[in-house]
């Protein structure tokens, strides 16, 4: 394992993290250590074992298609950093 600065920068960009230059180097080393540790799992022989997405031996939790009360516009917006009378406000999205 050897994380490059570019890889760290890429992951940071995807997560919308703003990292300083010196942080890139430090995090590259940290992530390298973490990945090497996790890489130990690759030593296991997992031939013929289905990938596990869930640890609980359960499946199919359904709800029926019946309307239940919503919380309403006012409550929906109560924690919004910016809102008008019915919508969340966000910085202008350009396409």
């Amino acid at each position: 394992m050897s994380m490059t600065r570019e890889q760290v920068a890429h992951v940071a960009r995807l997560a919308r993290l703003d990292l300083a230059d010196n942080e890139l180097d430090r995090l590259a080393a940290d992530m390298d250590a973490i990945l090497s540790y996790v890489d130990k799992l690759n030593e296991l022989d997992i031939d013929g074992i289905e990938p596990t997405a869930h640890a609980v031996p359960m499946e199919n939790a359904f709800r029926e298609d019946r309307v239940r009360p919503s919380i309403g516009t006012e409550k929906a917006l109560v924690n919004a950093p910016a809102a008008d009378d019915s919508c969340f406000l966000v910085p202008k999205v350009i396409e």
């Binding site: 298609d65 019946r66 309307v67 009360p69 919380i71 019915s86």
Partner: peptide, 24 residues
């Protein structure tokens, strides 16, 4: 055209007041 959303019981009706059909 289900009556409710895929993962919660909020109505899918079109054209209501913005954010009125929402839940956590």
């Amino acid at each position: 055209t289900t009556d409710t959303k895929i993962f919660c019981g909020c109505s899918t009706e079109f054209g209501r007041t913005p954010n009125s059909q929402t839940c956590p």
